[in-house]
Computed example of a mutant assay.
Amino acid sequence: MSNKIRELPAILLSHISKSYGSGEGKIDALRDINLEIAKGEFLALCGPSGSGKSTLLNIMSGIDQPTSGTVMFLNKLLHVLPEEELSMVRGKHLGFIFQFFNLIPVLNVFDNVFYPLILNGHFGKKEAHERARDLLYRVGLDGFANRKPGQLSGGQQQRVAIARALAHDPAVVIADEPTGNLDMATGEAILELLLHINQQTKTTFIISTHSAQLKERARRVVEIKDGGLVYDSRA
């Protein structure tokens, strides 16, 4: 018999359902989702528009609450935490990457990475400064620190967003269509960067996507349709 202790997952979803409205107007956005995501995984969450991908990401991250079921995030019952503690968990352990970058246009590249580190209260100015510089170097933008987002290409803006998401060393990064607003070549470059970071840091990546490139390259693919889980490449 093996004495190896099984590592706890990064995220464990048990019988997750999410409904909106009631009666004849009720919409079942998610239906009895069971999903375990290991630490260090690179998972592509696929499905057509309206399938429930964004709703599932929001529930994983505690932005939204399930109608029923349980959400375990790093061994915490996420869906029952009070809002103050939930915000602390997200601020410390979660990074977010969005399709439309969500950079602050009046701040330069460096400050878009630096200020969130200061505002979340986990780092002093000196360490935040060093981390911002290091992450911009790692994503290939160390020479662009003083530029504003409007002076960058779409791919460069997404690299800034990736640096911002990773600067506080999160355990899990959730990305909602991170290559959806980019051309194919730029999207491939961003995908290569995310895969490299995953290999280098063992950060867990959960990526919602329509991209065939990402689906082919991800180490695990999960598909949902009409709110239900219909495929898991690990099964």
Rank of each mutant, 00 (worst) to 15 (best):
L12I: 01
L214N: 06
V173M: 07
S233A: 10
I224C: 05
I16D: 08
Q200D: 14
F101R: 03
R147K: 15
H79L: 00
G150S: 15
R164T: 07
V230R: 11
E24Q: 13
I97G: 11
G47C: 09
V109M: 09
L78Y: 02
P105Q: 01
E177G: 12
F42T: 07
R159A: 03
E7N: 12
G21Y: 04
G155Y: 00
S2Y: 00
G62L: 00
I162R: 09
I224L: 06
N108Y: 00
T70W: 01
I59G: 03
S19T: 14
T209G: 07
T179Q: 11
R164C: 12
D142Q: 14
N112W: 02
G47W: 08
A189Q: 13
H93Y: 11
S153Y: 01
F100Y: 09
I33C: 04
L195I: 14
L56H: 02
V222K: 09
N58S: 12
H93G: 03
G180K: 10
N75W: 05
T67N: 09
I162Y: 04
D28T: 11
I197E: 11
G21K: 12
E7P: 00
D134N: 13
R217N: 12
S14N: 14
Y231P: 07
I16L: 09
K4E: 13
G21R: 09
H168W: 00
N181W: 08
T179C: 10
H15A: 14
D232T: 11
R217T: 01
K225R: 13
F100K: 05
F114I: 02
M1P: 07
F100C: 00
D176E: 10
L194H: 12
L107A: 00
E7I: 05
E83A: 04
P66K: 04
L166K: 02
S51L: 10
H196E: 15
G228D: 01
T204F: 08
V109K: 07
A163C: 13
K215S: 15
I206P: 14
Y231F: 15
Q65I: 09
A38W: 02
V172D: 08
H15Y: 00
V106M: 06
T186R: 06
I59D: 01
A10D: 05
F110W: 05
F123P: 11
G62K: 03
Q158L: 12
I63P: 02
L56S: 06
I27H: 06
M88K: 09
A185I: 11
D169I: 00
P48E: 15
P9T: 11
E188V: 14
R217C: 02
I118K: 13
R164K: 14
E188C: 01
T204S: 13
D176N: 14
N108R: 06
F114A: 05
T179M: 07
A128H: 02
F101C: 07
M60I: 10
L86T: 02
F73W: 02
A163R: 13
E85S: 01
L214W: 10
E130Q: 15
G50H: 10
A235D: 14
R164W: 11
D226E: 15
G91R: 10
V172I: 14
A29M: 04
L119N: 05
R90V: 03
Y231C: 04
K39D: 05
E41D: 15
I190M: 12
T55Q: 03
A185H: 13
I63G: 04
N102E: 14
